[in-house]
Amino acid sequence: MPRYAMAIDLAACVGCAACAVACKLENEVPAGVDRLWIRLEERGTFPDLAMQYRPEQCLHCAEPPCVPVCPTGASHVTADGLVLVDAETCIACGACIAACPYDARYFDPRGFVGKCTFCEHRIVQGQLPACVETCPTLCRTFGDLDDPESDVSRAIRAARRVDVLKPEQGTRPKLVYLNTPARFGLAAEGALP
């Protein structure tokens, strides 16, 4: 079984939000809630400045805190390692929203919890997630972590540095950030998937 993962090269990302718009339309995400967003951080004083745009979404953690807290099993991990919500059995209690360290989940107004699916419907057909396919900076790579020749494995190998968000949470995310600009970064030995 593949172990799907994504890597985002922050040296390349310009925060244009093409990924966020693509996600919105691909997945018909209702107005007012989002599966994918971009965080901007600025550091320094003029003219000694640094800046980072960081797209964020569900990290499809290998140890997802959002799954065990679910009282109905709606929040689950697939055999491919995708962390998904089954709308049919979700009671919208919000336990998973509370448990996610990354604010990746939201209440869909239609009565269940929504989140990034890595575009499962696309990857089962051999396509890339919508955000990866459209990115005009080519900063996103996706693929099977167990396949050393997959795009994502190659990108992680070639990166100058690899970061994960909140490594101290022990979630072992399968979305990692590459080449975080100097002055930023989280660096996490052993936290990688």
């Binding site: 807290v69 009282p71 109905t72 336990a95």
Partner: peptide, 25 residues
């Protein structure tokens, strides 16, 4: 509950989720 008309709460009792506090609740 956003899910009040969806009758999904029945799954609280059709599942076995001992790691979930809400399931115990």
């Amino acid at each position: 509950s956003l899910a009040r008309w969806r009758l999904t709460h029945v799954y609280l009792f059709l599942s076995f989720q001992p790691a979930s506090a809400i399931w115990w609740g």
